[in-house]
């Protein structure tokens, strides 16, 4: 469904990705692991159409997406992808429910419809109580659940999560993982999960290990 072929990407002299190929099947949960600086986030950003690789291809459902124009790529991202970052990256001026409604508003849904759907998602993730609170008033775990709701509200094909539990303690991380994967599975979304924590990687169906910008041989089935 989502495929990367021979991706390379450099920042100045640093080669962040060096010929990486991966394939994600529909509904699959894949962990991307490896030490800090291995290229995990860069791979995730290339797959999600946030960064463009210098060489290689990113293909979604048979359609090459790394060569799309900016407007088309943005539209595709909003429709097909959801992204959860380590620190939520929510809009601090908005309430929790408004944050979750945002992607639907971008996708030209009516405000009433968007707010109702957002409230439903907050309830599913057990943070309905926080709906009207500002992001600054939420705990780390609550913020991540709001971020998960925002990533899933559009019914994406793929959810990308970059160290989603990185700022949480063990139990908080477990709750976010369970909520995110439960919701993704229910919606049939695949999940690409970047983490350096093996206990988080253990939630995935399989693992892709990066080292120095390349897939580590001998580790992946």
């Amino acid at each position: 469904m989502l495929e990367a072929r021979g991706l390379s990407k450099s920042f100045g002299r640093a080669r962040a990705l060096d010929g990486v190929s991966v394939e994600i099947a529909p509904g699959e949960v894949v962990a991307v692991t490896g030490p800090s600086g291995a290229g995990k986030s860069t791979l995730l950003h290339c797959l999600a159409g946030v960064l463009r690789p210098e060489s290689g291809e990113v293909v979604l459902d048979g359609r090459r997406i790394d060569t799309l124009g900016e407007a088309e790529l943005t539209a595709l991202r909003r429709q097909s992808f959801g992204i959860v970052f380590q620190f939520g990256e929510l809009v601090p001026e908005l309430s929790a429910v408004e944050n979750v409604a945002l992607p639907l508003l971008f996708n030209r849904h009516g405000r009433g419809e968007a707010m109702a759907a957002a409230a439903e998602w907050l309830e599913r993730l057990e943070v309905a109580d926080c709906a009207d609170q500002r992001i600054g008033e939420l705990s780390g775990g609550q913020r991540q659940r709001v971020a998960v709701a925002r990533a899933l509200v559009t019914g994406p094909r793929v959810v990308f999560a970059d160290e989603p539990t990185g700022a949480l303690d063990t139990l908080g991380g477990e709750q976010v993982m369970t909520a995110m994967l439960g919701a993704a599975r229910a919606g049939g979304a695949a999940v690409v999960l970047v983490t350096h924590d093996n206990r988080v990687a253990a939630y995935a169906d399989r693992e892709i290990t990066l080292r120095d910008g390349a897939v580590l041989a001998g580790v992946n089935p």
Binding site: N198, R199, A201, A202, Y203, A204, D205, E207, G218, V219
Partner: peptide, 16 residues
């Protein structure tokens, strides 16, 4: 070590 790592991870997936 690489094979032991895989076995450990597989077991961690089961336990999870």
């Amino acid at each position: 070590l690489v094979r032991q790592r895989e076995a450990h991870l597989a077991r961690m997936r089961e336990l999870t």
